[in-house]
Design a protein around this nucleic acid. Structure first.
Lengths: 243, 243
DNA sequence: CATCATCCGTGCGCTTGCGCACACATAAAC
DNA sequence: GTTTATGTGTGCGCAAGCGCACGGATGATG
């Protein structure tokens, strides 16, 4: 069903899912960019000018409170895009988009996005479906924050990363994870220590290696699977070859 | 700017914001329905057939976990609609929509919705903008669940209700609120008791009366205002007369 | 090789919220 | 008017997570 494009833009699943004609049309508007760790793609409330389709990079959507504490509401990698507000009409959101794992992405200017979106084709369909899948992710984060332990959430967070990464190794300190999860660094250290003791992960100074994915899934809360299944339900028929 | 329609469908702000021609076109497809307290509009994962535009009713979006505990991710009243998944492409969501405050709504069948949505007019714009505003609400709920106290969240929750209601009186037990907030009934009782002591609210057996809205806003976390401001930013220009 | 910054382990007191249990009040039902 | 159901107050003990503090370890820098 899905067409093989002649470009590594295919690494982004949403782009890869486009029919040949739509792909050819938007291809010239896609500019490859390299994103560095910690780079801020969008600042909260700031007018957006481009939408990003990550290929190897992972971008984190963060809320920053008045007192400076932070919490992640969602993550996008080659399964999605960053910059939903551009086609939803708001042009901006109250969240910040930060590069959590350095890598590449394709950048598409706002004008090209609007042109293609307004045609009402598969491009629009896929973008809207992805938006719904992101809503599920955010919703699940909300209930997860309320009802589950730090350790369960850490497992979930590691699994999401694992899905978006090409490797088992994750460059990430406990401190950064704490900022994402909205908890203390010590809390992450304790949870990670426990997971290491169980043999699910290993880590040394800023590098976490996932040793046993299945066990991690069992140690995570149901939230991980709900979001994953919902993504597959919404976009699976477009992204047939994936996974 | 906004046209005065000849119908009480105007009580729903999104419908009221439509230009005359679009309103006339969708009007015959709107069926007034009465919604009773506790009624389940949509069940999690169940195929949707209608979208709802509340006028006096308030609908709560709930997640139900495997162990039966619940948490609210958002609320819609005459400021919005229920059934986003219908035009986003998913046809369903993992959440349940429950009537939290009895009242009326307009029901629009899926087919009519798709017809009008695909025209790419103001209707589509407004629906997408509302979706973004709901995403903000859900996102803020996520960080609020992580970072703020039960009392702060209770204030926020009361304020949202107050905005959607036509009165200061809220028919709601501590137990139900606890289900919404995803906390214990006792926790709500303690927080509510404190707010009553401060003179912000009064309550007796299932009825809560808001006494001092300004003070409630000061006692709430920033989350309330962020969501409200974002809604106004996204939809304010359409809903000029509102507030 | 020595210094320094960064990352992680650990301990302690404290607060918030949980789970449970039960008493008491007020409305509804008969 | 008595019974019954429902809604709220209160009091435990307990666990999770917070804020703070400090010490040790590891890797980068010069």
């Amino acid at each position: 069903m899905s067409v093989k494009h002649t470009d590594d833009a295919v690494m982004n699943h949403l782009i890869a899912a486009l029919p040949e004609d739509e792909f050819i049309r938007i291809k010239p508007t896609l500019e490859p960019v390299s994103l560095t760790l910690g780079e801020v793609i969008y600042e909260s409330g700031q007018q957006l000018n481009n939408i990003y389709f990550p290929t190897t990079a992972i971008i984190s959507l963060l809320y920053i409170m008045e007192n400076g504490s932070t919490a992640e509401i969602g993550m996008s990698g080659n399964d999605g895009l960053v910059g939903i507000a551009l086609y939803m009409g708001g042009s901006t959101t109250p969240s910040r988009a930060v590069v959590q794992s350095a890598g590449n992405a394709f950048r598409m200017p706002s004008s090209a996005l609007h042109d293609e979106f307004s045609l009402g084709g598969v491009f629009q369909k896929i973008l809207l479906r992805y938006t719904q899948s992101l809503m599920t992710q955010i919703s699940q984060t909300a209930v997860c924050n309320r009802l589950h332990s730090v350790e369960q959430q850490l497992c979930r967070w590691l699994l999401i990363n694992h899905d978006l990464l090409q490797t088992n190794k994750l460059i990430m300190t406990h401190d950064l994870i704490a900022n994402m999860l909205g908890v203390r660094r010590e809390g992450v250290s304790i949870a990670a220590g426990h997971l290491q003791q169980l043999g699910l992960i290993k880590y040394v100074r800023g590098t976490i290696t996932m040793m046993n994915r299945d066990a991690l899934e069992r140690a995570a809360c149901e939230c991980y699977r709900v979001v994953k299944d919902e993504y597959d339900r919404l976009l699976g028929k477009y992204i047939s070859k994936n996974r």
